[in-house]
């Protein structure tokens, strides 16, 4: 199925109506009718991963080949099991496409979000999306982040992490330009022992090696065995890049087909995956998220 590559194509009808009304008001002339698109309206039952001849080494939401891949609709609901959880479903569907080149699998994930949220300021949270895969054997673990001895392998992309990669991890002056700071410990030129370690001793999370405290590249690889157990692991080359445009996130996450000690995909072998989306602007973080409540079968062709 061929479809228009405009991200507007995935917008829910009510957003399209709002956008066209605004345009109408602004221009004072009849708005151009939106280009017809083939929006999937029925739930995807199996995600087919077709082979492409393309460079998948760099995740690219605007790559031409995505036009030739049919998107599938995957429904989400507010995480219903553990508190804290959202009161309402903020993201009701995610549109999924996937391709592979025998060694790398690329997923394009798109969902409507009316505002871009990169976190940074106090009390702000980031837009994010995650895919999870079962880790071992044919038995499917709990879709709720796995279970003890039944781990899941998660690829977690955040707009905040992408900002780190593209514009550097923000300091207080980047977040609050008018902030006044005299100096930081060991950060003055005559400090007798102002080495990196001495400075980092004043940044507890960094000093103790918490992966959360370092500059990110875009995608965290996480192993989890149930709620509250997620643990960021050494990466295996997964990458991600997202573009937010016209109220729509379009994020590509690439991962190696084979990950020793992690989840592995193979041509012809049945596998599964599931999804979660966070809208930072709605204060969603951690268990405050919208999720797909089941494993979606995945078939690498």
């Amino acid at each position: 199925m061929h479809r228009n590559s405009s991200p507007l194509g995935f917008l829910p009808t009510r957003l399209l109506l709002a956008a066209s009304s605004a345009l109408w008001a602004a221009c004072g002339t009849a708005p151009t009718a939106p280009a017809p698109v083939a929006l999937p309206t029925t739930e995807l039952t199996e995600l087919a991963v077709n082979v492409v001849t393309a460079d998948l080494s760099r995740p690219d939401p605007d790559a031409a080949f995505w036009r030739d891949v049919a998107p599938g609709l995957v429904s989400l609901i507010a995480q219903p099991v553990t508190a804290p959880r959202p009161e309402i479903t903020t993201t009701s569907s995610i549109y999924v496409q996937a391709v592979h080149d025998a060694s790398t699998v690329a997923f394009r994930l798109q969902w409507a979000d009316t505002e871009l949220s990169e976190a940074g300021h106090l009390g702000e949270f980031s837009d994010a999306v995650a895919m999870e895969f079962p880790m071992v054997g044919d038995k499917l673990p709990s879709v709720m982040m796995g279970a003890k001895d039944d781990p899941v392998h998660i690829f977690h992309w955040r707009a905040q992490y992408q900002r780190d990669a593209e514009r550097g991890k923000p300091e207080i002056k980047d977040l609050y330009p008018n902030a006044s700071v005299d100096m930081y410990p060991m950060d003055f030129k005559d400090a007798p022992s102002g080495g990196k370690d001495d400075k980092e001793a004043f940044n507890p999370g960094i000093a103790i090696g918490n992966p959360q405290s370092y500059s990110k590249t875009g995608v965290d690889e996480i192993i989890a065995e149930g709620f509250s157990t997620s643990s960021v692991e050494e990466g295996h080359g997964a990458a991600g890049r997202g573009v937010w445009k016209d109220g729509m996130w379009s994020v590509v996450i690439t991962r190696p087909m084979v990950i020793d000690g992690g989840s592995t995909l193979a041509v012809g072998r049945p596998n599964s995956l599931s999804f979660a989306v966070w809208q930072g602007g709605k204060d969603e973080v951690a268990s405050r998220k919208c999720i797909h409540m089941a494993w979606l079968p995945l078939k690498v062709l």
Partner: peptide, 17 residues
């Protein structure tokens, strides 16, 4: 940070903890 009513947990935006 949300839960402590006395607001004595504080978020560090540099270490993100």
């Amino acid at each position: 940070v949300r839960a402590c009513p006395y607001k004595k947990s504080m978020y560090n935006p540099w270490t993100r903890t």
